[in-house]
Design a binder for these strands. Structure first.
Lengths: 346, 346
DNA sequence: CTGTTAGCGCTTTCAA
DNA sequence: TTGAAAGCGCTAACAG
């Protein structure tokens, strides 16, 4: 079943069928309707590769997510929500989605950029901060429109979307302050990662604003994983003047800190309040349940898609300030979820 | 940069370039090498849509995962590993991957099958058990090769890959028995879902083999989520003769059961041992850490891809028994992870 | 409003 | 071993 066959059966030319099915204005309503019905009846679907070939556009976006294994434990649960959000937003905008594979190291020609060219992809969305990736840098430096979520990469046709990490951290600290806490420590992620640095900055800003002292020992760097959180917790609680509350830049570390407290027979939240970041699945499963700063995965996905579309539709036709895109924030707000680990009554 | 340009610069015809780049035998080694080098230098990459159009095959597989929101909480962490495994296995077999979107309800013509036809997809991999989906059934009934992971759907060109749920459950029960437990209860998933039913069957078989009595009250049905596990735990522990061990068919329910024990001031694993199923992230984060039956996501992904490829390569050329596919098990073994919730010393 | 026609970039006969 | 030429299914000028 192809367009020629459909044209034959409708008694019109292929051009008319094409016009009818593509909603071109020049077709009479009657013919369009007739062709539509027949197409639906016969189960006709246009051949996309053929369309792509002639139109020189594929309506397809590439998706890159996490190259190595490194980040696996880190962003896992978060990632799936993001993936889902991106997929939904993209399909609502009538784009197709192609999953790009990490290029094999043994094939020098394989690269994200190659894949984009081969498939006529119109843009790429990049999820998570990948380990320093050469292929990704080549892509970012190219003329391919890219939108990165929570990813530090820049290029001429590149946008970055991320949660408002600083504001999220601030909100967490403020929440703890409101609860009466005055000695609030933090466990950070690896500070070379932007989100980790931003969350620390938010913590500092909040403390400053609230007039809280931040002794040097109150800032401990972790690696986002459980054990580092527990070790940091051990250290903090062993201080001469231990904190009464901890803000951890990641949920796994927050849970680790709760374990540290438990090992000292301290009760959470009575003796130590804890707030994490990310709202991973486990946050709602542990006991006490973990208060956390949730990222809005849907909003992130939508913002990324909106930003990418802005890059796609006539990059230079309208003045920057007038583009719809700019209305969509590249910084997505977070939401504080108060649960047992910081709820006085719990 | 296209094949014509490359041909011109190499001083040969496009046909020769095509043959050289596609490893056809009829090209002299010298020309092939020369063309290869030039192609690499010029950064030439063949246009896939054009190839697809003429070859009538796309080397592309579609991926369907979770239609509704329902399953969201359920299989989440598991899914991402699966996705990753499928992506890797597919790219090793030189297939591209297209993410399919749940068809919009308001467009009667949109369907998975349509998408497959439009893009010339050669097969589809389906992840997770979706809610009773009409579109999916249409697809399964078609001539499109499909491989489902943990999904109950059948059709003429369909294979199903799943973990050995029964054996996994058996192993869990046996483990508890070895620890000295004789009163072992179970919390099941919704029994209309195959994995849930299979896990229950494994539990029963193990009990029978080990000579353990299974009073009717020892089997409680849950919904795979936390709360149902806690409620089931409450009920089991309130029995006149409460179990000393619980096998839950899902980790969230297992964690719920641990909460129930904690609320009664029972110690896990001393007063109650618990084993779950799936090895979600939280299993390693809760305290005590949760023993569980882990599914091998990589193996599942690889098995699905292998099975699908078996369907693709000459479905009827070789007798069934001789196909390479049949060497790859459609049932993937699980692995028991013993952690704190069932470790005597813990 | 509709039809005719010329390709899009590639692979694949068929001839040489 | 190579080249010339046809055509995959579709869209987009250009005519009518």
């Amino acid at each position: 079943m192809n367009i020629r066959e459909l044209a034959r059966r409708s008694g019109v030319s292929t051009a008319t069928v094409s016009r009818a099915l593509n909603d071109r204005a020049e077709v009479s309503e009657a013919t369009r309707e007739r062709i539509r019905r027949l197409a639906s009846e016969l189960g006709y679907a246009p051949n996309e590769p053929a369309r792509t070939l002639v139109r020189r556009r594929s309506d397809t976006i590439g998706l890159i997510w996490d190259s190595g294994q490194e980040a696996q434990g880190l962003h896992n649960p978060f990632l799936l929500g993001l993936l889902s959000a991106v997929r939904t937003a993209l399909s609502e905008a009538d784009y197709h989605l192609m999953l790009l594979t990490t290029p094999a190291a043994d094939d020098p020609d394989a690269s994200y950029l190659q894949a984009v060219r081969r498939h006529n992809l119109e843009g790429v969305i990049v999820l998570t901060t990948p380990p320093d990736d050469r292929c990704l840098r080549v892509l970012a430096a190219s003329d391919v429109p890219c939108a990165g979520i929570d990813t530090a990469f820049t290029g001429p046709h590149t946008v970055r979307v991320s949660s408002d990490n600083a504001a999220g951290a601030e909100a967490a600290v403020e929440h703890l302050h409101t609860l009466g806490h005055r000695r609030i420590a933090t466990i950070t992620g690896p500070l070379h990662l932007p989100p980790a640095a931003e969350r620390l900055a938010g913590y500092r800003r909040a403390c400053e604003r609230l007039g809280l002292a931040v002794p040097e020992e109150y800032v401990v760097e972790g690696d986002f994983f459980l054990d580092s959180g527990q070790r940091a917790g051990d250290r903090l609680l062993a201080l001469g003047e231990p904190p009464t509350a901890i803000f951890a830049a990641g949920d796994q570390m927050a849970i680790g800190a709760m374990h540290a407290a438990a090992d000292l027979n301290l009760s959470v939240p009575r003796d130590l309040a804890v707030v994490g970041f990310d709202d991973i699945d486990a946050a709602a499963l542990v006991r006490p349940s973990l208060s956390t700063v949730a990222q809005d995965q849907r909003a992130l996905g939508e913002a990324a898609v909106a930003a990418l579309r802005g890059l796609l539709d006539g990059p230079d036709l309208t003045p920057r300030s007038e583009r719809t895109v700019s209305a969509t924030p590249r910084i997505v707000p977070t939401r504080l979820l108060v649960r047992g680990s910081s709820r006085p009554g719990a």
